[in-house]
Amino acid sequence: MEIKHHALAGVIEFTPRVFGDARGAFFESFSEKIMREAGADVPWVQDNQSRSMRGVLRGLHFQCPPHAQAKLVRVAQGRALDVVVDIRRNSPTYGQHVAVELDATRFNMLYVPTGFAHGFAALEDDTLFLYKCSNYYQPSAEGGLYWNDPQLGIDWGLTDPIISPKDQVLPQLAEFDSPF
């Protein structure tokens, strides 16, 4: 498995070795040993899946402590622009982001540690997005940042994204008090 550490400390991209032939393809989608050795040593307790049409933008979300979640995310069908924003208040990269295209052809995955807001934009119809989470979802611990905050400067690659009403009213970084 290829391992790439991104500019934001703790964010790791994994690209598996794919074995393909006329029948299709096979790859190892999770290895606790490889994740631990790369620095993503967390217990996984919940898997989630979403399906989105092209142009849907979900995020930027996180869970507040003590219900904070690390995530291992990948696309099983389609393509998505995955974005993580550092919201660790004492981090030298606070407010900075990394964007990685995840797709079902490369089978690449992104590890998002706690202390990061996370979101993605579906780049194809019927994009299936898989989340492996280190903590159970707790509605009272939900948090987020406004997806189009000019201070974050995220280029989502979409001209008119489809956003949930809840995501349209999240705070901008300047008015945000990070719980991390």
Rank of each mutant, 00 (worst) to 15 (best):
E32A: 15
I34Y: 00
E37F: 12
A40H: 02
A40K: 05
D41Q: 11
D41H: 10
D41Y: 13
D41N: 14
V42N: 04
V42E: 12
P43C: 09
P43E: 10
P43Q: 09
W44C: 04
W44V: 15
V45D: 06
Q46W: 07
N48L: 13
N48I: 12
S50A: 11
S50T: 10
S50I: 04
S52F: 12
M53I: 13
M53W: 15
G55V: 11
V56P: 00
L57G: 00
L60T: 07
H61S: 02
F62R: 10
A68V: 10
A70K: 04
K71V: 06
R74D: 02
R74A: 05
V75G: 02
A76C: 12
A76N: 13
Q77T: 15
G78I: 09
L81D: 06
L81R: 15
D82Q: 11
D82N: 14
D82K: 07
V84E: 07
V84Y: 02
V85K: 02
V85I: 12
D86T: 05
D86E: 11
I87Q: 06
I87D: 06
R88G: 00
R88E: 00
R88C: 01
R89M: 05
R89V: 12
R89H: 10
N90Y: 10
N90E: 15
S91L: 08
P92S: 08
T93L: 15
G95W: 04
Q96W: 13
H97M: 01
V98C: 11
A99F: 03
V100A: 00
E101H: 03
L102P: 00
D103I: 03
D103Q: 03
D103Y: 06
A104W: 08
A104H: 10
T105C: 07
T105R: 13
T105V: 14
R106D: 12
F107I: 01
F107H: 11
N108T: 07
M109Y: 04
M109H: 12
Y111T: 11
P113K: 08
G115Y: 01
G115K: 01
H118T: 00
G119Y: 00
G119T: 01
G119D: 02
F120C: 04
F120N: 05
F120D: 02
A122G: 07
E124I: 02
T127H: 00
L128H: 10
F129S: 06
K132H: 15
C133A: 07
S134Q: 10
Y136W: 15
Q138T: 15
P139L: 11
A141W: 05
A141M: 09
E142M: 05
E142W: 06
E142V: 04
G143F: 10
